[in-house]
């Protein structure tokens, strides 16, 4: 297999030594079928064992190897070296604090994800022996696309509203809230609305659309947020017309 040598300019940050991040360049001979993650692994295995970054599955399922690759939030396991220019700049995902090298602090995302109750809120709890909650293929189709999220947070890195706006709940969490709101077995919509329909929720989004452009799973969080805006506006008018209605 043919080898091509790339210059990897990797952002480094050691909280014990550095006051701010710096770049370090590595020459990496890459094989034709390598992805960026392979090249980063090469650096760790052969050139500098102290390089820190997250990865696990190497097949766009775990969602942990997100990095800024030439300024674009990308899964490093899904970005082929053969499509890259000779010099590549690799940085930790934008809009998150840097823990060390390419590892970012994800606590804020995790808190926001939990805040939208991203789980089935069933009308009445069923015992296991009573069987599963039934759903037709048509009902599943309504939200299936939003179940594909792998929590990679590329969408948060692409979102200027998350970067600039204080407290924006953000694309993936709102898309997941929409996923459960659309689920025929779920009744948690009004419980989620406190967060979802707040100023920090859907109304902070100005539809830049970058989240959907970078999403590796084609979840389309921007679409989910706009749909939620419409549903929540309709809710507002329904509440005006019939106060105290059953939700």
């Amino acid at each position: 297999m043919s080898l091509r040598t790339f210059e990897l300019e990797i952002m480094r940050y050691d909280p014990d030594k550095d006051s701010e991040p710096r770049f370090e360049t590595f020459s990496v001979p890459c094989e034709e079928d390598w992805v960026v993650l392979d090249a980063v692994n090469y650096v760790k295995d052969n050139l500098d064992r102290t390089l820190s970054y997250r990865w696990s599955c190497h097949m766009a399922v775990c969602g942990s190897c997100g990095m800024m690759i030439n300024g674009e939030p990308s899964l490093s396991c899904k970005t082929f070296m053969r499509h890259m220019p000779d010099k590549i700049r690799i940085e930790p995902l934008a809009n998150f604090p840097i823990e060390r090298d390419l590892v970012v602090v994800m606590d804020d995302f995790m808190d926001k994800l939990a805040s939208v109750k991203p789980y089935l809120v069933a009308k009445e709890k069923k015992a296991v022996e009573d069987g599963s909650y039934l759903q037709s293929p048509a009902q599943l189709k309504k939200f299936k696309q939003y179940t594909l999220c792998i929590n990679c947070t590329l969408c948060y890195s692409a979102c200027p509203q998350y970067a600039l706006g204080e407290g924006f709940v953000g694309p993936a969490a709102l898309a997941l809230a929409h996923r459960y709101n659309l689920d025929s077995r779920d009744v948690g919509r009004s419980a989620r609305a406190d967060v979802v329909a707040s100023n920090e929720g859907i109304w902070e989004c100005s539809f830049v659309g970058a989240c959907s452009e970078v999403c590796p799973e084609h979840v389309d969080p921007a679409g989910a947020i706009q749909q939620t805006k419409i549903a929540s506006t309709l809710d507002y008018f329904k509440d005006l017309i019939t106060p105290g209605r059953d939700k």
Binding site: Y13, D16, G71, A94, N95, E99, P160
Partner: peptide, 21 residues
């Protein structure tokens, strides 16, 4: 020790960073 580094973003010129912005 933990000392997360926070990158700053210009509130006036952020949109020049990418064609999509």
């Amino acid at each position: 020790s933990r000392k997360p580094y926070i990158r700053t973003l210009s509130s006036t010129s952020w949109w020049l960073a990418q064609p999509r912005y």
